[in-house]
Design a binder for these strands. Structure first.
Length: 463
RNA sequence: GAGGUUGUAGCUCAGUUGGUUAGAGCAUCAGAUUGUGGUUCUGAGGGUCGAGGGUUCGAGACCCUUCAUCCUCCCCA
């Protein structure tokens, strides 16, 4: 069987799908630019050492490694060495510069950090960048998870101001407002989670508590309790956690109650102050017309363990849509420290393009006119009419009208079927009669209405 | 890393306890229709039944191996 196929976990995007994806990307791009973010692109491949050790043990295994090429030309002793290395690679997860020294990028954050460190002397800090590119993971694909997928990030590095947090919240609000997706934006702080771990008397268990708590929406409080016990949290600690996450009220009320509970944990008070400051900046920057809500959500944890301050997550707030988070982010201190540049703080957000696409599809919220391609097709009648059609074609394009001429003078029926399948808005019939009178017949494909008019009338109607 | 699903025409899938020449719909092509698409009608082409082995008089179906695929858990986006 030699049917063509594509690698597991990859996708083709058909013309209609690409248009819809571009609609999302263009919307986001315009907002990023409006907020003063600059575009950045980095290579599909990075040096393997740039990536290894940055995503945890699990992450290292999911990095797509690129085999070195040209090795077959080397000498006999090199072949022996390569064979040895190959055996190590095949026996277990292992990498060696002899076999592979490059890898496909795993996310956009680490390459961004690498870029910042490499260009630290040229960049104007704080550096605001956005980046929309595919990334690759050697994960096992399943529903909604791919080996090649797109990420879309906006980050600010080199500033600890909470204005940045507020601006990124605004970007979320503005973006989803423009895309017509109702959202709830959940915010929290890693500092509150750290304080929570202190309240439990087990500050070193913060990651365990975080991971368990993150599943609250999925497995419920009973499930979380079970997992916390498994992770070695005492019942007294679980009581504390229960007390904290059962706080209710508006954001202001929640933060006030929290500061009572965390009165003896300085890091908790710090987190509370940061959240409340960010929210007040946000109020000043945001537009009253934006829908959706921002909610302090104490059980929000997020898996990534490099966040250190405010964390944020966006979920679609519609009864008709069941979907996990469609965006997330937070503050990370010292990301560039991994590459030797200390003391740079960053904060960023990420948009889940594929999930946003699915949500728009479910809400039926894509703009109508995205579906069609060329606006008008000219029927090819062959002979002298072909040259006439070409002159009409050129004038249409000169006027900025998207047009195409059917390239072969095949049966009329076939050309009309093609136009129909391509969902053309109009068809122009430049035949014998039209050519002799120097007119065109313009047919509206939706209504079937057709009339013979001058080219300039036609152009003004199509514009 | 663990567990499960499904592989039959370009696509979506039927195919009975194993039994003639493996079917349907859609799509394609041709014709009814040489300047009018979506609707009809008629006809045609297109399959090493994922691959390899086994059981059998006989395998698309049963058994083994293998590959691919999708999904669930883990983890993540």
């Amino acid at each position: 069987m030699s049917k063509p196929s594509i690698p597991q976990g990859t996708r083709d995007f058909s013309p209609v799908v690409v248009r819809k994806r571009q609609y999302i990307l263009n919307t986001l791009r315009n907002i990023f630019e409006l907020y003063g973010f600059q575009p950045l692109e980095t290579p599909a491949m990075e040096n393997l050492v740039t990536l290894t050790g940055k995503y945890g043990e699990e992450g290292d295994r999911l990095i797509f490694k690129i085999l070195n090429n040209g090795l077959h030309e080397k000498k006999e002793q090199d072949k022996v060495k390569l064979n040895d290395e190959w055996n190590k690679v095949l026996s277990k997860p292992y990498s060696s510069p002899v076999v592979t020294e490059r890898a496909l990028r795993y996310d956009l954050t680490i390459p961004f950090a690498r870029y910042v460190v490499m260009n630290q002397n040229e960049l104007a800090f704080p550096f605001r960048r956005y980046q929309m590119q595919p990334v690759w993971r050697a994960d096992r694909p399943q529903n909604g998870r791919y080996r090649e997928f797109w990420q879309c990030d906006a980050d600010v590095v080199g500033s600890t101001s909470l204005i940045n947090e507020a601006e990124l919240l605004c970007i979320y609000q503005a973006a989803f407002h423009q895309l017509h997706i109702p959202v709830k934006i959940k915010v929290n702080s890693r500092k509150l989670l750290a304080a929570l771990a202190e309240l439990c008397g087990t500050p070193e268990k913060m990651i365990d508590i975080t991971v368990a708590l993150d599943k609250l929406d999925k497995i419920g409080w009973d499930g979380v309790t079970k997992e916390l016990r498994e992770r070695g949290i005492e019942d007294a600690g679980i009581d504390q956690i229960s007390k904290v996450i059962s706080i209710t009220g508006d954001n202001q009320a929640k933060l006030e109650q929290l500061s009572t509970l965390m009165v003896n944990t300085p890091i908790g008070l710090e987190g509370i102050k940061e959240l409340s400051t960010s929210l007040s900046y946000y109020t000043g920057l945001s537009d009253a017309g934006w829908g959706g809500s921002i909610e302090v959500y104490i059980s929000l944890a997020r898996g990534l363990n490099y966040y250190t301050g405010v964390i944020v997550e966006v979920v679609c707030d519609s009864e008709n849509v069941k979907m996990g988070s469609i965006g997330g982010g937070g503050r990370y201190d010292d990301l560039t420290g991994l590459f030797g540049l200390k003391g740079l703080s960053g904060v960023g957000v990420s948009f889940g393009i594929d999930r946003i696409y699915d949500v728009l599809e479910q809400l039926n919220a894509f703009p109508e006119q995205l579906a069609s391609g060329a606006q008008v097709m000219l029927v090819n009648f062959g002979g002298d009419n072909e040259l006439y059609a070409i002159s009409v074609l050129k004038q249409l394009r000169d006027a900025g009208i998207s047009a195409e001429l059917y390239p072969d003078a095949v049966k009329f029926d076939k050309q009309m079927k093609y136009a129909n399948k391509r969902a053309m808005a109009y068809v122009i019939l430049p035949g014998d009669e039209e050519r002799e009178k120097q007119l065109v017949s313009l047919k509206n494909f939706a209504t079937g209405e057709q009339k013979m008019i001058t080219l300039s009338e036609c152009i003004s109607q199509l514009k």
